[in-house]
Amino acid sequence: MSNLNLIKTVKDIPPEEYLAPGHRLCAGCGAPIVVRLALKAVPGPKIVVSATGCLEVATTIFPYTSWKVPWVHSAFENAAATASGIEAAFRALEKKKGAKKPKIIVFGGDGGTFDIGLQALSGALERGHDLLYICYDNEAYMNTGIQRSSATPKGAATTTSPAGRVIPGKLERKKDLIGIAVAHGVEYAATANPAYPVDLYNKLLKAAAVKGPTVIHYYTPCPTGWRSDPSRGIEIARLAVQTRIWPVYEYDHGTWRINIMVKKPKPVEEYFKLQGRFRHLLQPENKWLLEEIKKDVEENWNRLLKLAGLKT
């Protein structure tokens, strides 16, 4: 860890690109930003494993691929397991034939990570495979047309949690992925956000430096699924942090840190009003839900302050 060259500005990020343009992610999609940065941050030979989802389908439509590194997709729920096998194979072949073991980077959506792929992820984390798992969380199953996942935030409308007259969107809280990862004993786990690229890049560096499993939970603007203006993705991402809805923090070898301290949070309404999925929350009849969300946000922030050893 000590010889990590953490960066200070965006200018320190290497210029080489390992993800080619020509992919078919929507205009303004936030997913490729973390991909570009991860492929730059992980030094040396690397292999990418993708779960089924937007990123996978849009970057490899036969006969074209956007990946300039080896890339493997098998199914939706098994990215961590597939990666485990690749890692084990290189471990064995390194011993037998001296082949140098590349770093394995896994990209799974929130559905592929929080829901259907959670068991495979848990297995991989528990077994301690040397891989960097990045969940690009756009807070719903986007590839199949915006269905709810356990990462969909409370209040959000999706096609399977529509803002109905009786039930105004999703009523359950978002699962705590970092908590789950840390409970497995990983050495490094962090949330990250494209509005803070230096922080994001440094987290990728830190995660890549660990020999063993690490988890990055990346906030992924999705203009299509969120019914938001594609040009405002980064702005929305920043607001998510500034309202304390999406805290940026890390667990680093036993220490919890809030990386982006939000002293004076902005009203959550500012964040909600930019996205169609939340607009119903601003209706008077849904005030109870809005209030509940505000309470959750505060509770979660206080929980993190406590973990970080800060006063609430």
Binding site: S74, T82, S84, G85, A88, A89, A99, Q119, A120, R127
Partner: peptide
């Protein structure tokens, strides 16, 4: 002299095998 991957399910067993086989093992 092999890597034994004690997976958490058969779904993961075969998935890991797919990855390992593609990796040349």
């Amino acid at each position: 002299n092999a890597a034994y991957v004690p997976v958490e399910s058969e779904h993961s067993a075969l998935s890991a095998c797919v990855g390992a086989s593609l990796a040349g093992a």
